[in-house]
Design a protein around this nucleic acid. Structure first.
Length: 589
DNA sequence: GTAGGGTTAG
């Protein structure tokens, strides 16, 4: 198509004005084919000007659906002109003689896949049913799948996917990415459902191989993302090997996903090595690597990389600021963190967003500067959300300021009456101060409101198989051996002078019960199983969906000493590397 | 004779 003589002639036009003149001439002489070519050229060239394209379009007396589709797709590609695309679409509908066709819908569904256009998707789906005849076109089906995944209806996506007899590569990729991403909206907040979604992505990948569709880079990015969510190192490393064995490109997408995967699987060294190998690094790559340093508690290395990216001419974005400040607050680098926050406005010309205020509150609060944290929170330009109040609450709890904690919690429960973690935090604060009546009061409040405590669970990978453990779980096939092992661990740790910190247990129960309850926290079960089932020279790697409790943290340090095992735990906030009786977090967690 | 769907960081 690009070889058409008229287009070649047009490509010699170097200014928008000459293009416009040429186009005007064509329109007036009624050359409709040429009109198309020009529209297409305008659309695909860097000189695309949506206002001008629309002006021309409006002068065409009888535009065909084909011409509508061309323009709609160009407008949706721009990202910020979606409203114009939809108004063109509604013009098709008002035409008596025109109907949308299979080419009209894919770009519109793509436009509906992100805010604020999500609401337009379902009505558009009814139009598909109205205007198109089954069997539906592959592209239409794929864009529908993708839309429903982004709309939060993953089940519906899967249902539609199952009805496609031979999905093509892009369709598989959409489904895989949908599962991998549904779990990674908030990093590290792995829940049972999220883990299931990521596991489903792994299963789907093997189905894909069985169906003889050859994966490409996009497929691998989704697969690697799923491994990151699961902390599944051997699957992730296998995926890396797959990229190399099959001569897939280690492009920015694949590279960033791998850096993130190695980092989230606890292998910061491998993440660094890979990062150094990447040839064209953009802000995304840097963000992943800085985020890796941050989560592993290497604050100064994170800062160093942050400075390096600016030297290399890359512009930090909102996410860069988040991860770098996170590194500062988890590494005790308060002044550096404050400086970065202030620089978002001054140096980088960004208006700090809600999440940046979140980092700020966390930074100050964690460092014990509670009053300042509270002041910043009260004086910020937007309304603080639950995450910010929780941050303040966490800080108040860490530094034993019960009064501030109670105040923060009041706001928090107002914003999130259904979230059990809020009640648990308050209750733990009361328990720490032995205020058992207050603990009981919170417990009643939870019961009245029908809020259940979120079950803690841990994920562990041994020899490529994933094992899940819930608190007090007895469902594992080796459950008996695990509980025997816990008995042994407890006896061994007592030799090291360990006395359990019973205040972490929520309720006012007898001391001995509390000890039992702690012994069966999911991480304890996972560690016991790993000690039984994995070679003693291997580090133990696991993921916890909540934050590690104080007692488990102490115990895990001791186990790393008593059993001479490195234990690497990813909790919902960060990594803990336990080695020889100490932890890399140095208490910042 | 022409147009359409999938990927990375917090």
């Amino acid at each position: 198509m690009l070889n058409h003589p008229i287009l070649q002639q047009l490509q010699k036009c170097h200014s928008l004005n000459t293009l416009k003149q040429a186009h005007a001439q064509m329109v007036t002489t009624g050359l409709s084919l040429q009109t198309y070519y020009l529209s297409h050229f305008l659309n695909t060239s860097s000189k695309f000007d949506s206002a001008y394209a629309l002006t021309i379009f409006n002068r065409i007396p009888t535009p065909t659906v084909f011409l509508y589709n061309t323009l709609i797709s160009s407008l949706t590609r721009l990202g910020d002109q979606t409203h114009l695309a939809f108004s063109l679409y509604s013009r098709i509908l008002t035409h008596e003689t025109l109907q949308p066709n299979s080419f009209t819908f894919p770009s519109l569904f793509k436009a509906c896949s992100s805010d604020p256009w999500l609401q337009h998707g379902p009505p558009l789906h009814t139009h598909v049913l109205k205007f198109l005849q089954p069997p539906y076109d592959h592209f239409v089906q794929a864009s529908l799948l993708n839309f429903y995944a982004k709309y939060g209806k993953l089940c519906l996506s899967r249902y539609l996917f199952n009805q496609i007899s031979k999905p093509d590569l892009a369709t598989w990729n959409i489904m895989l990415a949908a599962y991998a991403q549904s779990a990674s909206h908030i990093s590290y907040s792995t829940s049972f459902e999220d883990a299931d979604m990521s596991l489903e992505a792994l299963y789907l990948f093997s189905d894909m191989l069985l169906s003889q569709i050859k994966p490409n880079e996009v497929t691998l990015v989704a697969l690697i993302t799923a491994c990151s969510n699961l902390g599944a190192l051997s699957q992730g490393a296998w995926a890396h090997g797959y990229v190399l064995r099959n001569n897939l490109k280690l492009n920015r997408f694949v590279g960033t996903a791998l850096v993130d995967m190695y980092s989230k699987c606890g292998c910061l060294n491998l993440a660094c090595q890979l990062f150094d190998q990447l040839s064209d690094r953009d802000t995304f790559c840097y963000n992943a690597m800085i985020g890796g340093f941050a989560a592993h508690g290497h604050g100064s290395q994170a800062l160093e990389l942050y400075r390096k990216m600016k030297v290399e001419g890359l512009v930090p974005d909102g996410a860069t600021i988040v991860v770098t400040m996170f590194a500062c607050s988890h590494g005790g680098l308060v002044e550096e963190g404050l400086e970065i926050f202030e620089s978002t406005k001054g140096v980088h010309g960004m208006e700090p967003k809600l999440e940046h205020y979140g980092c700020l509150i966390d930074l100050l609060g964690r460092a014990g500067r509670l009053k300042e944290a509270e002041e910043r929170l009260q004086n910020m330009p937007m309304k603080p959300n639950a995450i910010l109040w929780r941050s303040l609450l966490g800080a108040a709890r860490l530094h034993g300021n019960l009064e501030m904690g109670e105040a923060a919690l009041k706001h928090l429960i107002e914003l999130e009456p259904e979230t059990s973690g809020n009640y648990v935090l308050l209750s733990n604060m009361y328990a720490n101060s032995a205020k058992w009546n207050d603990v009981k009061r919170v417990r009643m409040l939870m019961k009245d409101r029908g809020v259940d405590k979120l079950p803690g669970f841990s994920l562990l990978e041994i020899n490529g198989a994933m094992h899940e453990f819930l608190t007090g779980d007895r469902a594992h096939p080796f459950s008996k051996e695990i509980y025997l092992k816990i008995g042994e661990i407890n006896r061994r740790l007592q030799e090291y002078g360990h006395k359990p910190r019973t205040s972490e247990v929520l309720f006012d129960v007898e001391e001995e019960d509390k000890e039992d309850f702690l012994s069966y926290h999911s991480e304890r079960l996972a560690i016991a199983f790993a000690l039984i089932a994995s070679p003693s020279s291997f580090p133990i790697r696991m993921i916890k969906n909540l934050r590690v409790c104080g007692d488990c943290h102490t115990i895990t340090k001791l186990i790393s000493l008593a059993y001479r095992r490195d234990i690497i735990v990813r909790d919902r906030n960060r990594f803990h590397h336990f080695k020889d009786g100490s932890c890399s977090c140095l208490g910042f967690w």
